[in-house]
Amino acid sequence: MATPLNYLRSFGPAADPLAALGWGLIAISLAVTAIIAVLLALAIFRHRDTDRPGTGEPLPVTRESKGMAWIYIGVGITAVVLFASTLWTVRTVTAVYSPASTPALTVDVTARQWWWEVKYRGDDPALALTTANEIHIPTGEPVRINLASADVIHSFWVPQLAGKTDVIPGKNNTAWLQAEKAGDYFARCGEYCGAQHAHMEFHVIAQAPADFAAWRRRQLAAAAAPETVELRHGQQVFLMRCSVCHAVRGTLAGGNFGPDLTHLASRATIAAGLLANNAENDAAWVDDAQALKPGSGMPALHLPARELADVVAYLRSLK
């Protein structure tokens, strides 16, 4: 069974101590519950034979002494366990509060209702790039995430790499991630943020450093130019109908209300993780996004069939 958001399995130093603490406290909790359940059951059934309700007479009231020992011993043991747990907690906070080495890579993530804008800085502005709903990181090194919100409060959560960090308007929170293993780590918004909080996922894709560098190079390239009649038509439709909100670098499309689509076809999902990125889903999304994700910023376009087919073909060409 796939459990991609299961945070008791972790793959990096920002999450490992959390998973360990989680297992530890689960073990303590289960033990406490089991001990109490046994004590309670024994207490309830200990005198079972002596009381037969329905004999008419009430059982007399009595008081045995020694009851206070229960409280002293029980609370004494509890206090020791609590003290140990507090120490473990404080140690864990210290362990994950900041990475062991200063991150070389910083990614600026802006949370929006209901998708994630992802920006990579470059020393040269020409090396900066913008994408959406996918954060690629190199494995084996810490990555700093600067968080900003364009609207309401969200929470940045990559369960198998780190705990949540809230994204609060006007407050510049940061998080850090480090993946020891290449892979696709599922992630999502962790704070209720409105109608489509349910569909505000993203993916952290950890790659070997060489693969990451190659990905970054490809993303820096301008969008592929349309080569066929259909694609050119598709691009025209895109510029007329989509470019107010969406950008495609290297064209006149420069809108910044919606995700940057320069290399849309390189992403695995669309609509913040809602749908797999394929021709069928792309067409359904462009045609009537409101049916798939009611309330989202993407309007239902209801394009004529040919325009739809061509614009989808164009989007599919943005590799």
């Binding site: 705990g163 949540k164 962790g190 209720y192």
Partner: peptide, 15 residues
């Protein structure tokens, strides 16, 4: 008690 542990709560909260 589990949610009282700050770092674990970063995972548990809002689930």
């Amino acid at each position: 008690f589990m949610t009282a542990a700050v770092p674990l709560d970063w995972q548990l909260t809002d689930t």
